[in-house]
Design a protein around this nucleic acid. Structure first.
Lengths: 126, 126
DNA sequence: GCTGTATATATGCTAATGTGTATATATGGT
DNA sequence: ACCATATATACACATTAGCATATATACAGC
């Protein structure tokens, strides 16, 4: 019997590294991890990358089970999958520490965005 | 002036992930990390991969600054670069924890190897 | 309904990456 | 010097992966 509480046991280090191997995906993961939740337009602005490019990487990260999305009106918000195994969270944290300067620069760029969409709290979380 | 004591500050998360992205290199890193030091023939046996393949990945890991090598007679031993930054070691440890079963299987396979070369202690280390 | 904004996907192309095979280099023993 | 073992590298090939562009879908407001 498969326990429902099982954190995404499917995720292997190989899959995680394949995701983090790409610079864009790495930036997305670090920024979402540090900000809690971001929508696609915030990410395209922070990363200064085209929308299709960001979307494609986001869907890849979602398919691998690293990110969770929720739609709120016209916007789709992404956050780190809450049941990510501990070892994967450790990798993210260590990466953030190793890429401190890059993350800081992404946060600065995100801060320059005007008219960021206002979000309601996520149902039953955060 | 560049301080010599500086731990390989050159290593970025991107480089580390590029290395760990390949399954063979990931196995090498995990096994060397857990065993302390291994020579090429031990690795080819444990991974059940061809010698040129293992050697090629080893030289890549050495060039990226993840592994250190030393020759002792006909054998070349590899170990994790001692001045690896903390965040990178954290990634390795987390990976080992996420790939526990795979690592255990590599260790079992290594244990089946007969006539493993006897090594002297490394000069001034270990 | 139509229009604009936000997001997702499909397509064709290019570049990067890994592989096997063959070969080169290094060391030790006879 | 010759041979065997251990390791490294070169080359040709196949596969993968990311990209830009165009297009499709979803939602909000009128």
């Amino acid at each position: 019997m498969t326990t429902l509480s099982e954190p995404s046991a499917l995720l292997t280090p190989g899959q995680l590294f394949k995701c983090l191997n790409d610079e864009t995906r790495q930036a997305i993961m670090l920024l979402v991890h540090s900000e809690g939740e971001l929508c696609v337009c915030e990410l395209t602005h922070a990363l200064e990358q085209s929308q299709p490019k960001v979307s494609r990487h986001l869907s890849q990260l979602r398919n691998c089970g690293l990110l969770q999305d929720r739609r709120e009106g016209q916007w789709v918000y992404y956050r780190v999958m809450p049941d990510l195994p501990d070892w994967a969270l450790d990798v993210l944290t260590a990466t953030a520490s190793g890429a401190g300067e890059m993350l800081a620069s992404l946060q600065r760029q995100l801060a320059t965005m005007g008219n960021r969409p206002t979000r309601r709290q996520m149902c039953c979380q955060e």
